[in-house]
């Protein structure tokens, strides 16, 4: 499929990412065709293994949708997720891949517009890269 219709795996926190996704659907916003949404109980559950597996399977990008800082139901889950994403970006760079393949996106549960925007932004970034 390549850059025409990139495959994006979105790990969505049950508390913010998933409601935002549902909201985007209810608004009838256009979401990319290659979107794969995986619900996780907390942003911090987006394991290194999950993200690498997704890239291994051929995903063009992995996005972790979690809560804003200070909003996490589990206190620091979103901060752990962000740190993990930053760590993985570094690993990707060492492998010679583009670190933009993994993104951490804080999003509010009632902000489906932002959810769609972030996906669109990522697609543009991917298009520029190729």
């Amino acid at each position: 499929m390549g850059s025409e219709n990139p495959k994006i795996v979105a790990f969505c926190c049950e508390e913010s990412g998933m409601p935002a996704y549902e909201h985007a659907l209810s608004l009838g916003l256009e979401l990319p065709e290659g979107l794969r949404v995986i619900a996780i109980p907390c942003g911090g559950k987006a394991e290194t293994g999950y993200i690498m597996k997704a890239l291994d399977e051929g995903a063009d990008a992995v996005m972790v949708f979690a809560c804003y800082e200070g909003n996490c139901k589990y206190v620091r889950g979103n901060i752990r997720a962000e740190k993990r994403v930053n760590y993985l970006k570094g690993r990707l760079e060492k492998l010679g891949l583009s670190p933009e393949k993994i993104v951490f996106c804080p999003v509010a549960p009632a902000n489906g517009v932002r959810f769609a925007e972030l996906l669109q932004q990522e697609i543009e970034v991917l298009r520029k890269g190729t």
Binding site: I40, P41, C42, G44, K45, Y74, G77, R84
Partner: peptide, 25 residues
Amino acid sequence: GCGLCASECPAKAIQLIYYPDVEVL
């Protein structure tokens, strides 16, 4: 059941009973 421990465990010894890694993979 937030899964933070499961995602950080270096030995992969922790699983969420209701949502095991296998499902995601």
